[in-house]
């Protein structure tokens, strides 16, 4: 089976800093794939490279077998790939409704985007209540929902969510994941999710990649990695398992 999204040997630099060094990963249609890694591992950079936000110096990124243009985020959005960035990035002075509508304009067809607005509102009753408030006034959880809803407005096939749990209370995080899984069921979405820790992810993901220092250290099905020891080792960057996992080499990164 060929992958929906395929990265091979992607390299990204910020000036002299190499943020991704030969990153390769695949996401298949209908999967929930999770990328986990410590601070500075390159998770957000990987998503930005896929979405066309940062240039890559080497490697290829394909969607359904087609090479994605580098640095053309507005074109990539039209190919059915949508990003929910780290820190949500809602348009704070625009209302909830306007935020969502921004996501719908690429459809071109006004009737279609009105229908999408209706449907998205249906998934997020809480947003419906705050419809005309500036998005900047929403709580963190509401902003995360808005950011996801806004991504949905672009009619994506693949949604990338960068650290959905960032800064949210555990109960809210559960709600966010529930809605993501519901969207996967009902909208037939494929999901790529970044997280810093694996403990919740193992329940939701089909497959997991562990990234550190800009490369994939480990990957496998959530099933196979269930006990967490292999993940810990890859995450912190030593071969041994278990016992001295809190000698945190990864903290330097």
């Amino acid at each position: 089976m060929s992958a929906m999204l395929e990265l091979s040997d992607v390299e990204v630099r910020y000036g002299r800093l190499v943020a991704l060094r030969g990153l390769s990963l695949e996401v298949h249609k209908g999967e929930v794939v999770c990328l986990i890694g410590p601070n500075g591992a390159g998770k957000s950079t990987a998503m930005a490279a896929i979405a066309g936000g940062v240039p890559r110096v080497a490697g290829s990124i394909r969607l359904n077998g087609q090479e994605l243009p580098a640095r053309k985020p507005e074109q990539i959005a039209r190919l059915g790939l949508s990003l929910v960035p780290e820190g949500r990035h809602v348009f704070g002075t625009l209302t909830v409704e306007e935020n969502l509508r921004v996501g719908g304009f690429l459809r071109g067809n006004a009737r279609e985007s009105a229908a999408a607005l209706e449907r998205v509102a249906g998934y997020f009753p809480r947003l419906k209540e705050r419809w005309t408030s500036p998005a900047g006034r929403l709580s963190g959880g509401e902003q995360q929902m808005l950011s996801i809803g806004r991504a949905l407005m672009t009619n994506p096939r693949l949604v990338m969510v960068d650290e959905p749990s960032l800064g949210l209370a555990p109960l809210i995080v559960d709600a966010v994941y529930e809605i993501l899984l519901e969207l996967r069921e009902r909208e037939g979405l494929t999901l790529l999710i970044n997280e810093q820790s694996s403990h919740r992810i193992l329940r939701f993901a089909d497959r997991i990649y562990v990234i550190r220092n800009g490369t994939i250290q480990l990957h496998g099905t959530a099933e196979a990695l269930r006990d967490g020891e292999a993940i810990k080792a890859a995450y912190f960057g030593f071969k041994g398992t278990g016992a001295n996992a809190n000698v945190v080499e990864g903290a330097k990164a």
Binding site: A51, P85, F91, N99, V102, G103
Partner: peptide
């Protein structure tokens, strides 16, 4: 207005 507030994010959403 979206672009004025967060240009890159607007592009990610398909705003030209």
């Amino acid at each position: 207005r979206a672009a004025a507030e967060d240009f890159r994010m607007a592009q990610y959403l398909g705003v030209r």
